[in-house]
Nucleic acid binder design. Sequence first.
DNA 1: CATACGTTCTACGTAGCGTAGAAATTGTTC
DNA 2: GAACAATTTCTACGCTACGTAGAACGTATG
Lengths: 127, 127
Amino acid sequence: MGSMFTLGELERSVMDLLWESSTPMSAYELQDALAASGAAPDTKKLAATTVLTVLSRLEKKGFVGRERASRPHRYRAEGSREDHMAELMHQVLGGASDRVAVLERFIGQATPGETDLLRKLLDTSGR
Amino acid sequence: MGSMFTLGELERSVMDLLWESSTPMSAYELQDALAASGAAPDTKKLAATTVLTVLSRLEKKGFVGRERASRPHRYRAEGSREDHMAELMHQVLGGASDRVAVLERFIGQATPGETDLLRKLLDTSGR
DNA sequence: CATACGTTCTACGTAGCGTAGAAATTGTTC
DNA sequence: GAACAATTTCTACGCTACGTAGAACGTATG
């Protein structure tokens, strides 16, 4: 079974919309939003079933949940984009035998802004 | 074209061996090493051509380089595993609109050991 | 130059994802 | 409650990446 943590292009586009939206969205709203953003899928509207299929797959992967109560089911992201990304980063880090070396490189490659931010965050949270 | 940064299971096994090895390895050495480690590919020996195919693909992806001088070509990893992982982490971070939030989560989810380490690294490198 | 070893070419099976029609379900309206 | 419309689920097909390896080709050496 694939890493279970990777997203295809369309899947990502859908997640981007759901992560952005403060309220759950129906497949039809997503269909329109996707056509509007024109991002990953070109400018033409996808079939509704396509969006539904993707949503089902995302649900199976645990990325979205759905409210079956309302008739057009409404989908919402499980966890924020930031949660997801932070988790991805930890996943990468977790796969390393030598975390010190990885983090060294990570810090080394970071921009000044990022290191500043990290310092700040570590100061705040860590004590 | 796929992200160009993901590795399949066998590809990863090969990279693990190359990353570990201090000297370049021939396809045949890798073939044996893979059978020995028995990690990703079960315990049975893969065909030599299989290993060569994978190595070619890894070369195309820029993960390995080869010395064509010696007759059994010798392959070496381009960049350390740590470099790769750090790059992956930055890649994830780079795809975020709100890095602050991602790094917040990242720090939040980090183990005490990791935060300590980060503090140390930031202290050292930062000035 | 024949032979053995090594490399490249070609190819097939599988799985994930984009895509969507067909079929089933459900809510709604006389 | 039967017909209709909206919605969801089922089924399926094409494409690409990757694991896998045989066939064909190249090359050095006795």
